[in-house]
Design a protein around this nucleic acid. Structure first.
Length: 575
DNA sequence: GCCGTTTTCGGCCCGACTGTTTTCAGTCG
C-alpha cells in the first residue's frame, strides 16, 4: 500500500503543531510547515519518487533530513519523531488550538499550570474560574474563551467554493463602494487568485484621509455581519451570516499597489518576493518597497514587481510554484483568456439529464458568440440520467443534424459522453462512435478501484481509436468527493502517446483537471479541452470558471483545443 | 531544519490587533 502525499502533509503538520506547543525552535517548526506545503503542492507522488530512488531534495524546502523522514514515512507508514512527540505532548491539545486566539503558547501554559488536556478540562476550568488566575491570562481572555468556545475559529470554517462566494463578494464590494469617502474597493486574496475554494474574503479599501474610522464603522455595520473578530482603524475582521469570513484593510492611495500585492498572496508567493527583496537590499511590506526609509514603489503592483527586478505576474500564478523563477527568466506564459474560447464541446440537453432543449442550448451558445458546440449526452450505462443506447443515439443524431440545418451562425456537432466501463471498454459500440464528431469518455461508476486498476482501466479506454477526450479525469467533487485513486502522470503520458486530449471540466465543483496537472499536461505536450459540461443554458457561462483554473495551470491559448476555429479544432482531435 | 554570486554558520517576512503589561508577548494572516 503506498503512502499518499496528503498523509505526509498530515504527519508533518502534526509534528509542527506539537513542536510548537513544546516550544521548539520556531524556525525548525517552520521548516516542517514549509515541507508540508511543498509536498501538498507536488504534482507527483513522493512515495513514487522514493521508490524510484529519486532525490527529494531537488525541491526547495526539503533538505537531507526531511527527505530521510519522508523516506521513513513511505517505507514504514509512520514517523518515529511523531510517535515520540505524541508521547511528550498530548495530541488532544491540538483541538484546543482551534479556539480563536488560542495558540501553542497559551495551550502550553494551560497544560503546564492547570493540567488542561482536553476541551472538557477547559470547560471545567472555566466553570471553576481558574483560567484568569494563570499568568498571562486575564478577565478578558477568560470571557473570550468562554464566548468563543462555540464560535468557529477564524479560518476554521469549511472553505467555500469560489463560485458560491462570488455573489456575496460582489454584494459586499458594492456595499463598501457606496460608503461615503470610499475611493476604491478591491477583492484580493484567494478570491482574486481564482482558487477553487476560498477560506475568507480579503477586501482592500482606499478612502479619503481621516475617514478610516467611519469606514470601519460602516464595514462592521453591514447587515450580513454576524460576528466581529477584531476591529481597528486600518484592519478589521468579521464573520458573515453565510459563514464567509471577511478581512478588510484600509490603505493610503500611495500604497495600494503594494497592499493589493500583499493582500492577494499567496503567502508562499509573498515570502519568496520578500526574500528576493532582501537580496536586493530593499524591504517589501504592504505599504510599499523601501530602500531604507524611502518608498521606491507602492502605488501599483507593476511597480512593486519592477522594484524587485521582475515583470508583472498574473494573480492566478502566485503560488510560488515556479512563477518567480519563470518571471526572472522571462518565461512567463501568456495565459489563456475567456475570449480565446470559440466553442463548448461538452453539454447535455433535456434528451438526458439537461434542463434545456437542444434548440435552447444552441441559441444560448450562439448568444455567447461561439462558433460551434458539441451535444454530448450520457450513454446507456448512466441510466439515472436517462443515458442513450445505440438506437437512441442514432435517432438523436438525426435531430441534431436537423437543428443544424435550421440554425445559422453556429455549428452544432454530434457527440457523446460515453461511459468508461470497469474493464476499460466503452459503453457504446465503435460502429456508432465512429460516426460522431466528438467522443468524450468519462468514468462515472466504480470510482473506488485501487490505483493500479483504475489507472489501467482509463489507459485501456484510451486505446479505443474513437475516444478523443478524457472527461473530468479525476472525478473529484470539491468539498464532496475525493478524486479517484489514479496515477495521473501515467494517464498524461498515455494521453500524449495515444494523442488523446484531456478535459478541463469547468463545473465549479469539479474544475477537473486540477491545475497542477494542467501544467504537467501542457509541459508534456498533451492537448486540453476546456468545456462546461452544461446541464442548462445558464451553466454555459461557467466557462469563466474553467478558464480561471486553466490560467492557474499555466495554460496558453495554444494548449487548448477549443480556441481553434471549427476545422482546425476537429483536425486536432482526430487521432 | 533549510539555505547560500557576499555566507557551510547564522540568519530565517513583516505588521496589525489584543490583552496584560508598564514596554511586550501571543496570535493571526
Amino acid at each position: 500500500m503506498s503512502v499518499h502525499n496528503n498523509e505526509i502533509v498530515e504527519i508533518f503538520s502534526r509534528v509542527a503543531d506539537l513542536m510548537e506547543i513544546k516550544g521548539e525552535n520556531s524556525f525548525r517548526v517552520r521548516a516542517y510547515r514549509e515541507a508540508a506545503r511543498v509536498i501538498g503542492d507536488l504534482s507527483e507522488q513522493a512515495a513514487q519518487m522514493v521508490e524510484e530512488g529519486r532525490d527529494l531534495t531537488e525541491y526547495k524546502g526539503i533538505g537531507k533530513d526531511l527527505a530521510e523522514k519522508i523516506r521513513e514515512i513511505v517505507k514504514t507508514g509512520h514517523l518515529t519523531l511523531l510517535d515520540s512527540l505524541e508521547k511528550e505532548v498530548p495530541p488532544s491539545l491540538l483541538d484546543l488550538m482551534k479556539i480563536p486566539d488560542i495558540g501553542p503558547k497559551k495551550v502550553a501554559v494551560m497544560y503546564r499550570e492547570l493540567g488542561i488536556k482536553t476541551m472538557e478540562d477547559l470547560k471545567q476550568a472555566l466553570a471553576d474560574g481558574k483560567i484568569s488566575s494563570v499568568k498571562g491570562f486575564g478577565e478578558k481572555t477568560e470571557q473570550k474563551i468562554f464566548a468563543s468556545i462555540s464560535m468557529p475559529k477564524k479560518g476554521s470554517v469549511p472553505r467555500m467554493l469560489w463560485y458560491d462566494a462570488e455573489p456575496s463578494a460582489l454584494a459586499f464590494k458594492q456595499y463598501l463602494g457606496a460608503i461615503p469617502h470610499v475611493d476604491k474597493v478591491y477583492l484580493a486574496g484567494s478570491f482574486r487568485r481564482g482558487k477553487e475554494t476560498v477560506g475568507d474574503l480579503d477586501v482592500l479599501v482606499v478612502c479619503e484621509e481621516g475617514y478610516e474610522e467611519a469606514v470601519m464603522d460602516a464595514f462592521v455595520g453591514f447587515e450580513e455581519v454576524h460576528h466581529v473578530y477584531e476591529k481597528g482603524t486600518t484592519k478589521s475582521s468579521v464573520l458573515l451570516r453565510n459563514e464567509l469570513q471577511v478581512d478588510i484593510r484600509i490603505v493610503p492611495l500611495a500604497s495600494y499597489g503594494a497592499a493589493l500585492h500583499y493582500f492577494t498572496g499567496s503567502k508562499a508567493h509573498n515570502l519568496a518576493i520578500r526574500k528576493l527583496a532582501i537580496n536586493k537590499k530593499v524591504k517589501v511590506n504592504e505599504y510599499g518597497v523601501y530602500d531604507g526609509s524611502k518608498q521606491i514603489a507602492g502605488k501599483t503592483e507593476e511597480a512593486v514587481y519592477a522594484a524587485v527586478g521582475l515583470p508583472y505576474i498574473e494573480p492566478e500564478l502566485r503560488e510560488n510554484l515556479g512563477e518567480i523563477e519563470a518571471a526572472k527568466a522571462g518565461m512567463l506564459p501568456a495565459l489563456i483568456e475567456r475570449g480565446d474560447i470559440l466553442g463548448d464541446l461538452h453539454m447535455h440537453t433535456t434528451r438526458t439529464d439537461g434542463r434545456n432543449s437542444l434548440a435552447e442550448m444552441a441559441q444560448a451558445a450562439k448568444a455567447l458568440g461561439y462558433e460551434y458546440i458539441a451535444i454530448t449526452e450520457h450513454s446507456q450505462k448512466v441510466s439515472m440520467a436517462g443515458g442513450l443506447n445505440e438506437k437512441d443515439l442514432r435517432d438523436y443524431m438525426e435531430v441534431i443534424d436537423a437543428l443544424g440545418e435550421e440554425i445559422d451562425g453556429i455549428a452544432v456537432l454530434k457527440g457523446i459522453e460515453v461511459d468508461i466501463l470497469p474493464d476499460g471498454g466503452l459503453d457504446l459500440p465503435d460502429s456508432v462512435l465512429k460516426e460522431l464528431d466528438i467522443v468524450i469518455g468519462s468514468v462515472h461508476y466504480q470510482q473506488r478501484f485501487p490505483v493500479k486498476q483504475q489507472t489501467n482501466r482509463i489507459v485501456k479506454a484510451m486505446d479505443n481509436p474513437y475516444l478523443q477526450i478524457l472527461g473530468h479525469p479525476t472525478g473529484r467533487l470539491l468539498n464532496k468527493r475525493d478524486p479517484m485513486d489514479v496515477d495521473l502522470e501515467k494517464i498524461i503520458a498515455a494521453a500524449k502517446e495515444k494523442n488523446v486530449a484531456l478535459e478541463l471540466n469547468a463545473q465549479p465543483d469539479r474544475l477537473d483537471l486540477p491545475h497542477p496537472y494542467c501544467k504537467l499536461a501542457a509541459d508534456t505536450g498533451v492537448k486540453i479541452v476546456v468545456s462546461t459540461d452544461a446541464h442548462s443554458t445558464e451553466n454555459l457561462k461557467r466557462m469563466k470558471n474553467g478558464i480561471t483554473e486553466a490560467r492557474r495551470g499555466w495554460l496558453t491559448k495554444e494548449n487548448v483545443v477549443n480556441t481553434r476555429p471549427l476545422g482546425k479544432m476537429l483536425a486536432m482531435l482526430r487521432r
